[in-house]
């Protein structure tokens, strides 16, 4: 492989990972506020379908993304309402919505499979695209990729540097204490669940309008779960999550290359890769494994290992605010 090819591969990894990055950023916001939106897989399927159909019917790309975002926001609103207002289990609601999104997308999209539709146009950023190596990888892409990259830094700044971000995290860490300081925990949780859901919806539409253009049943099936796992792997940080999404994309790309190199190995082995990878990375960052590693690690390695591997979910993730 020469340099040109390598750059092309890296650029395609970035493109492939972009929707995943958007979904991961969205879900990270939601979970940092203390709500698990488990419905990602269903949300992404339904918004991929809706986004494509809306863009196909109106021939307007932006309307496609808007429709996807609306679907995502609506599903998230259901999760928020049932958990915040009705105190139902977030996992239960999320799981039902996962199945429902899947079957609704199959039913509603049945007349729109394998049709042409608009797709996100390529747009190289002048000047920046000429930076050696980085230019062609990062700045010779389309708007979606730029959006994803900006989103990583925007959510990261928002979470860790801004005052609203402080309040957002406090709602997920210790809602009772946040409430005592005048943070409106319920409103914040609604807000970030819906925003996160809208981003997930955009991610779903990004598949059918950019990365895997078009719609067919089960178009993005499984990717929502991958995104949820990456949020954990990323330790609920957008930057780490984005790295996770890129690594996932890179592994898939590597698998494609390997598959071509070893045609005698069954395609099955390569299909299994993402799921084995999912278990592998979750094992890697799990407290049980990391704890065991840390106790036995040489003292010099403890700090870096801890920083690299130990992740902690927001302490109040999935629990409700108890203020009476």
């Amino acid at each position: 492989m020469d340099n040109g090819q390598l750059i092309a591969v890296l650029a395609s990894i970035l493109l492939q990972a972009s929707p995943l990055i958007i979904a991961v950023c969205g879900e990270t916001l939601t979970e940092r506020a203390g709500i698990v939106n488990l419905s990602l897989d269903g949300t992404m399927l339904l918004s991929a379908m809706t986004g494509f159909v809306a863009a196909h019917l109106t021939d307007n790309l932006m309307l496609g993304f808007a429709a996807g975002a609306a679907v995502g926001a609506f599903f998230a609103l259901i999760v928020a309402f049932s958990s915040i207002q009705l105190k139902q289990s977030q996992v239960a609601t999320g799981f039902v919505l996962t199945l429902l999104g899947d079957s609704l997308s199959a039913f509603l999209g049945q007349e729109y499979t394998r049709l042409p539709g608009p797709s996100v146009p390529h747009f190289a950023i002048p000047i920046l695209k000429d930076i050696p190596i980085l230019g062609p990888i990062i700045f010779n892409q389309d708007g979606l990729v730029y959006f994803a990259i900006l989103l990583i830094f925007a959510t990261s700044w928002w979470l860790f540097r801004s005052r609203p971000g402080l309040e957002l995290r406090s709602a997920g860490e210790r809602p009772e204490a946040a409430f005592a300081r005048g943070v409106n925990v319920r409103r914040l949780r609604y807000l970030y669940t819906v925003i996160g859901g809208a981003l997930v919806g955009i991610a779903g539409a990004a598949y059918s309008l950019d990365v895997k253009i078009g719609w067919s049943e089960g178009h993005t099936r499984g990717l929502g779960w991958i995104a949820l796992a990456i949020v954990i792997f990323g330790g609920w940080s957008p930057v780490r999550g984005a790295i996770g999404a890129l690594l996932f994309g890179a592994t898939k790309a590597a698998a494609t290359v390997l598959q071509r190199a070893f045609p005698e190995v069954s395609v099955v082995a390569f299909n299994a890769l993402p799921w084995l990878l999912m278990i592998g990375v979750l094992l890697l960052v799990s407290n049980k494994i990391v704890g065991r590693l840390l106790v036995n690690a040489p003292p010099a390695l403890k700090r870096p290992l801890q920083r690299m591997l130990q992740v902690a979910p927001p302490a109040a993730l999935g629990t409700e605010l108890k203020n009476e």
Binding site: P164, R169, E173, A177, A178, R181
Partner: peptide, 23 residues
């Protein structure tokens, strides 16, 4: 104490004070 164990002392102090957007 009703505070935020994973936060920095400073963040914990700032939380709930309503002034300014960036910190």
């Amino acid at each position: 104490p009703l505070d935020m164990p994973p936060f920095l002392v400073l963040e914990n102090y700032l939380l709930g004070q309503r002034r300014g957007f960036a910190v």
